[in-house]
Simulated assay, not measured.
Amino acid sequence: MIEPLVTIDSTRPVPPYAQIRDQIADLVEAGGLAEGARLPSVRQLAGDLGLAAGTVARAYQELESGGYVTTRRGGGTRVARQPVAAPGRRSALIERHAREYVDSVRRLGADRAEAVAAVLTAFDASPH
């Protein structure tokens, strides 16, 4: 299941449906969700995240349009077959997120030591 891996940050300017879409797409691209893996139902994920069902439905629709998932009536939403990932795709995703983090903490005036300390603290506190 993906529930513990998908989180919503209400302080971000990114709408919740886009956060869901982006996180699931990253998981699929990085191999964290294998072909055929079943995603939670719209209602289940919405309830788990405290969101309206329409928000999750929009994320799933965009994931389907992007070729990340397929939805069949009675069969649920499943991860679609993906093209063979380029070597290093997972590393590239991690680096992209690291750059986004660095950009964010620099805007806050943090130096390298503060940024690294915050990452280590977050890793130690994370249940994953």
Rank of each mutant, 00 (worst) to 15 (best):
G54Y: 02
V116N: 06
A18W: 05
I94Y: 07
R89Q: 14
D26C: 09
V102A: 12
V84I: 11
V14W: 02
G47Q: 10
G66L: 10
A92D: 14
A118H: 10
A34W: 07
A115R: 03
R107Y: 01
P16N: 06
A25E: 08
Y68G: 04
R12S: 15
A46R: 08
V79W: 00
S104Y: 07
A46P: 05
A125F: 09
E62Q: 12
V69K: 00
L5Q: 15
G75V: 06
D48E: 13
L33V: 02
V56G: 03
R96K: 13
D111W: 02
A59W: 06
R78E: 10
Y101N: 00
L27Y: 10
G36H: 02
A122Q: 12
R21S: 03
R81L: 15
S10T: 15
S91M: 07
V116G: 11
Q44E: 14
D103W: 06
Y101G: 00
V14L: 14
D111Y: 06
A25C: 04
G32C: 12
L63P: 02
A86D: 11
G109R: 04
T71C: 01
D124S: 13
E29T: 14
A125M: 04
V28C: 06
A18H: 07
G47W: 04
S104F: 08
E100N: 06
E62F: 10
A18G: 01
G75A: 14
I8P: 03
G66P: 02
E95F: 11
L5E: 05
V56N: 03
R112Q: 12
Q44F: 08
A53M: 06
G50H: 08
A115V: 03
I2H: 02
R81G: 13
G109E: 02
A80W: 05
A122P: 03
P87L: 07
G47P: 03
L33E: 00
V6S: 08
A30H: 01
A52M: 09
R89N: 10
L108S: 06
S104G: 07
A125D: 05
L51F: 12
Y60S: 01
G32R: 12
L49Q: 02
G54N: 09
V42G: 00
D103C: 01
V6P: 03
L39M: 04
V84N: 11
P15K: 11
G67K: 11
E3Y: 08
E114V: 13
D9I: 07
R90F: 08
A52W: 09
P15V: 12
T11W: 08
G75D: 12
T121F: 14
R99G: 07
G67Q: 13
R106E: 06
R38C: 05
S91Y: 09
A113G: 13
A117G: 15
I94N: 05
L93C: 03
L49C: 04
D22P: 05
R72V: 07
G66F: 12
P15R: 12
L108I: 01
G109N: 01
P127G: 03
L93Y: 09
E3Q: 10
